[in-house]
Design a binder for these strands. Structure first.
Lengths: 245, 245
DNA sequence: CGCAAATTTGAACGTAGTCAACAAGTGTGG
DNA sequence: CCACACTTGTTGACTACGTTCAAATTTGCG
């Protein structure tokens, strides 16, 4: 609990929060659950469960199709809210698995409902963040539908770096993915073999460097150009939010 | 204004609404705007504008990538809320275009904020519907990433039928798409030529029939099997919503 | 009716997938 | 601390799904 509420910290990146709001948010993080790398937090079609805030670590959500292939939908980092969609369904629509050891703060639906009743500003902010994530999803949709394999791999590298950096400002151009090439393939709609070839190609072109599982962005502009990448966390306008309480 | 609030009607499909709530929602539909087929309601990178409720007709949202290719993100039907993401950005992240002549009910951000302050139940319901749409988006993501061309075409046919039917219960197995094969291609990440071949193949296999731009679903089970299709509007649990006002 | 847009079909091509073999890591238990 | 087993990464050869290009045909709108 070092950071003292990593959800309130995240939300205050967007707008200033009142002490009261902060306290309310931090109360959501009273319970804590540690999970090891590889743990499946909940599985597709399980009976729906709690929502949780990611406190530490990295997770991913995915679905498995009839033919056994997997599509990774999203990666989760500290401050992200996970499983909101599970509370509206009787059964989970997706699986959530820990990519690294992680700390989660689970809370139940009624706390969520309470937030809407007592803190309209926070509720609207959560909806706004939801929209950011929706737009990020549509960016990925356009990537899968309309860009080349190389562009998709470049895009995922840029995205992971941006998100890791938001959590830890000290991260520079080198990141350690924590993902296998198979994982990257399942996120980008490619095979592991082809991901390998694309990484090699990006390396040969001097856009990235690799040593083990660490990747260094050597030519960010070049990658962005190839990838149609847009940072969706900038240029926000949250001036319309209702006043805080 | 025949239907007397097609947004309140849609929301009441999910949970019963109080008279007060209904009135509040209907007040969002006081203004009305008619647009002709082909009208661009707002364009990517335009200065952000109003939100609107679709009252009548069909629209689509899309993005155009650097190389000029287009990805259709979503189709919009009566009762759908459009442009929510434009209110959180200074510039629109996507273009919205009318596929058929349509009627829209625009309203501004402050009405939206007011909803959060005065009607927590409605706010939570809007968030829940948002989540349904998010899950629908992830289904499409998995479709683009991990299913064949034929499956994607089958999926879009099933999806359009389901959504048209939700608006007009009298619609049976025959729908008139109102889309060109190019449009279907831009929605499924395929070329128009290949969409044509896939439609023919579905027809040859007896799964669908075609006459002009009308498509008849002849073997729904067969299509669903091929397409990994899940109806995301069923099996909901909204019992956690805060009480109405 | 006339014309532009949309559909249809064929042929050639290319991107990414598949299969297979081997190398390099990584972790575990003796 | 090493040996072994297993996972992950790498590379090559071949295949196939979907694209591209082009031309003919149909549709439907003004």
């Amino acid at each position: 609990m070092a950071s003292g509420g990593c959800f309130s910290e995240r939300l205050s990146d967007f707008v200033p929060l009142s002490a009261n709001e902060r306290a309310t948010l931090d109360r959501l993080q009273e319970r804590e659950r540690q999970v090891r790398r590889g743990t499946i937090v909940f599985r597709e079609n399980d009976r729906a469960s709690d929502i949780f805030i990611v406190e530490k670590g990295m997770l991913m959500s995915y679905v498995v199709l009839d033919d056994g292939s997997r599509q990774i939908l999203r990666f989760l980092f500290p401050g992200d809210l996970a499983g909101v969609s599970t509370i509206i369904y009787r059964n989970c629509p997706e699986t959530i698995e820990a990519v690294t050891d992680a700390t989660l703060c689970p809370f139940d639906r009624s706390s969520f409902a309470g937030l809407f009743e007592q803190h309209p500003r926070l509720a609207a902010l959560i909806l706004a963040i939801n929209q950011i994530e929706r737009v990020a999803l549509t960016d990925r949709l356009a990537g899968l539908g309309r860009t080349s394999a190389k562009a998709r791999v470049a895009a995922i590298l840029l995205d992971l770096r941006a998100r890791m950096r938001r959590v830890d400002k000290t991260i520079g151009d080198t990141i350690s993915l924590g993902l296998t090439q198979e994982d990257i393939g399942d996120a980008t709609g490619l095979t592991a073999v082809h991901v390998n070839r694309m990484l090699r190609q990006l390396e040969d072109e001097g856009l990235i460097a690799r040593e083990g599982s660490r990747v260094t962005i050597r030519d960010e502009a070049g990658l962005v150009r190839g990838a149609d990448y847009t940072d969706r966390y900038s240029n926000l306008d949250l001036s319309w939010l209702p006043p805080g309480r």
